Simulated assay, not measured.
Amino acid sequence: MLPPISDVLDVGRYLAGTGELPRHLVISLRRIAIGFGVGATAGLVLGFAVGMSRLADGLFDRSLQMVRTIPHLALVPLMIAWFGIGELPKVLLVALGTLFPVYLNTVNGIRGVEPKLIELGRSYGLGGFGVIRRVVVPGALPSILTGIRYALGVAWLTLVVAETIASRDGIGFLAQNARELLRTDQIVLAVLLYAIAGFLADAVIRGIERLTLPWHPHFRRGA
């Protein structure tokens, strides 16, 4: 049975008043920010390298595709064995879960740019960097932002699992501790916090899409 929403709000106010809720929330947000930042940056760098260079494609893509087939959440026990239950395994898991959606969508976005547009850019005197900045990046950006939106969802899912299994703090730990005490109101509060944080993060990316893709038909319609 789900607890009444009034009970959830009451426990939220109580935990906020004691300072416990803000502390756990800040810790979870910090883990997401670091892990997502590392994973997304690595995905973008590798994606641009593989998408733009046949040499990088031959060097990296097959190895990355092999690693991608391993469910990153299956690495939780191994991460705990290697690094304990500190910050590093959680950040690494979030980064690993984030890397591949960004990488794949970046590569697909770059390869989806019309070669005729690249030739047109060169005919207007654009050099290599100019073609990338004026043609490749705008053409690949919708796919890249889609990958980032998807990666954010994976990042939150990864953090939930990591904090629930092996953590001494964070929203996942709060939920796990509540489960042991049979505090369903606190569990629902943790779930709502994850949902709100994920929704706000997605809203930020959607805002970035509207700012950076005003030429795209989807956003011209005001959707």
Rank of each mutant, 00 (worst) to 15 (best):
F48A: 12
V38R: 04
I32Y: 01
L44T: 04
L75G: 03
R62T: 15
R30S: 15
L78N: 07
S53P: 09
T18M: 09
I34K: 07
L44M: 04
H24A: 09
P77T: 04
P77K: 03
G19E: 08
T41K: 11
G39T: 02
I70H: 00
G19Y: 02
G58Q: 11
L59I: 14
V67T: 12
P71R: 00
V67L: 15
L78T: 11
D61K: 05
I80Q: 08
F48H: 12
G51L: 10
T41D: 07
H24G: 02
P77N: 03
R54Q: 14
L78F: 10
S63H: 13
G51Q: 12
H72S: 15
R23W: 12
G35V: 00
T18N: 09
L78M: 15
A16Q: 11
P77H: 08
V76Y: 02
L21W: 03
M66L: 15
F36V: 06
G37L: 05
I32T: 05
L25G: 07
V26I: 11
I34W: 04
M79S: 11
V67W: 10
G47Q: 05
L21C: 03
T41W: 03
L21G: 01
R23P: 12
A42P: 12
A49R: 13
L25T: 13
M79D: 08
I80P: 07
H72D: 13
V67N: 09
I34E: 10
P71I: 00
L73Q: 00
I70M: 05
G19D: 03
L78P: 08
D57I: 14
G35P: 00
R30P: 13
L78S: 11
G35Y: 00
M52S: 15
P22A: 10
Q65R: 05
V38K: 09
R68Q: 08
G35A: 01
R62V: 14
A42H: 08
S28D: 06
M52E: 15
T69W: 07
T69R: 10
V76A: 07
A56F: 04
G43H: 08
G19H: 02
T18V: 11
M52I: 15
L59G: 12
G19M: 03
G39Y: 01
I32C: 04
D57L: 12
G39D: 00
I27G: 09
R31W: 02
R31Q: 08
R30L: 15
I34L: 10
A40K: 03
A49C: 13
R31H: 03
L75P: 01
S53C: 10
R30C: 12
R54N: 15
L29A: 01
F48C: 13
L78I: 12
L29S: 00
R31V: 00
M52L: 15
T18R: 12
T18D: 09
A74T: 08
A49S: 13
S28P: 05
S53E: 09
T69I: 13
A49W: 08
G43Q: 05
L46C: 12
R68L: 05
L73F: 02
I32W: 04
L29Q: 00
F36A: 09
A33V: 09
G43N: 07
R54S: 15
M66E: 02
G43D: 06
D61I: 01
D57W: 11
A16T: 14
P71M: 05
G47D: 06
F48M: 13
D57P: 14
E20K: 14
L55N: 13
